[in-house]
Design a protein around this nucleic acid. Structure first.
Lengths: 214, 214
DNA sequence: TAGATTGTTAATCGATTAACAATC
DNA sequence: TAGATTGTTAATCGATTAACAATC
């Protein structure tokens, strides 16, 4: 479909998608690279360049049709693939994600939650059942699951990754604060909240002591 | 102290810091750009280049002293500044962060949590008291607070940002899924979990349908 | 001292921006 | 058709890598 896409490009595609969703909600039907540029802070040239990594979605003299572009981006970003997901670890963070996070909006169907604590087994969060982690393999063998969200203690993570690998998981959304070692077929997306906070403190710090370079 | 630091550089500094912390824990006292390169996947040249944005922390023929480098990076990243923080919104996500996140490790002191729900006021999470959001201004006037962590519903966010601005907050760690409009003196770090998950699904998707470009 | 490894300059590579012909 | 705006090539800019002199 295309050559290797730089990470910077895919990050921008995601933002375009977010912004186009909002446009579509407000019933805007067409948009030009120039107006996107004004609103989003990227140059019009970059926007056109980015979109043309994947083929021409626009029309000269007109611009881009919002619904068409959303559709194309949705396909590229996997929204159309209707991936399925499970959460592993129903502690504070896992349940916060189950309660608050809108998986459906991103084309993902949250199908189950797993935990080790017996008192939770059989309960549910927003209609999504909590299962015993013992039953992970049997569940996975009868349900097609693409993505596992890891919100469990560090100490249990390696074992779980190993088990998920055997179950042929496709992607891991990793909240366990550690680097995972996985085989090449598993896509890992790490959420490093620690790095994010450090980034904030770096920026405050350099804001406070600005350039006194001579 | 230095010219404008590219975001890519500051992101790497954070990773160096993380890795050096681990080295220091294992009582490793010196490290070369070459060994860092092998372990971390950046080129040795890039590591030296990055560090020299801020001045020479190493010694020719020897390498870098781990504790010295940690110390310098800690200063640059603001770990030494002992920033203080409050969490606003003690829902699932806010309390997950209060329970699980190690602020102290990053040189940040979590001092208070604010919420609107009366039944929570007066309780605490891991020793950090929950206060009534009504009392935000009086609390801020008698306590020096640098950072606010926003884990409250979207609809209340704008108002709270406005109040925090008046209280001269320095930085906002934003989990409310929206772009904030703040004045130039406030540093904002957005955590876009949605974008992170989209990034995962994009990568799974392009993994599944690899380059069939001709 | 000889060996090692930094700090730094120069060369390369890649990503962003500018420009414009194609065309709706 | 004339005006607008894309798609795409070329020019610029910035970031990464290579190389090596300085020096511990």
């Amino acid at each position: 479909m295309k050559k290797n896409i730089p990470v910077a490009v895919s990050k921008r595609l995601i933002r375009y998608y977010r912004y186009l969703l909002a446009l579509d909600m407000s019933n805007v039907s067409k948009v030009s690279s120039n107006s996107l540029s004004n609103k989003m802070g990227f140059t019009a040239s970059q926007i056109r360049q980015d979109l043309n990594h994947f083929g021409g979605f626009g029309q000269q003299g007109y611009g881009y049709n919002v619904k068409t572009l959303l559709n194309e981006l949705g396909t590229i970003l996997g929204v159309k693939s209707s991936y399925t997901a499970i959460i592993i670890g129903s502690g504070h963070l896992g349940s916060a994600i189950a309660y608050n996070f809108n998986f459906a909006k991103r084309g993902i169907h949250l199908k189950a939650i797993f935990d080790i604590r017996v008192d939770l087994i059989g309960t549910d969060i927003q209609g999504v059942s909590i299962y015993d982690i013992k039953d992970l393999e049997s569940y996975m063998s009868s349900n097609k699951i693409d993505i596992a969200v890891l919100t469990l203690p560090k100490k249990d993570t390696i074992e779980i990754v190993d088990r998920l690998t055997k179950c042929k998981i496709k992607g891991i959304w990793n909240f366990s604060n550690m680097e995972l070692e996985t085989n090449k077929n598993i896509v890992v997306e790490n959420v490093h909240l620690g790095d994010s906070l450090m980034s904030l403190s770096f920026n405050i710090n350099s804001h406070e002591y600005p350039d006194d370079n001579s």
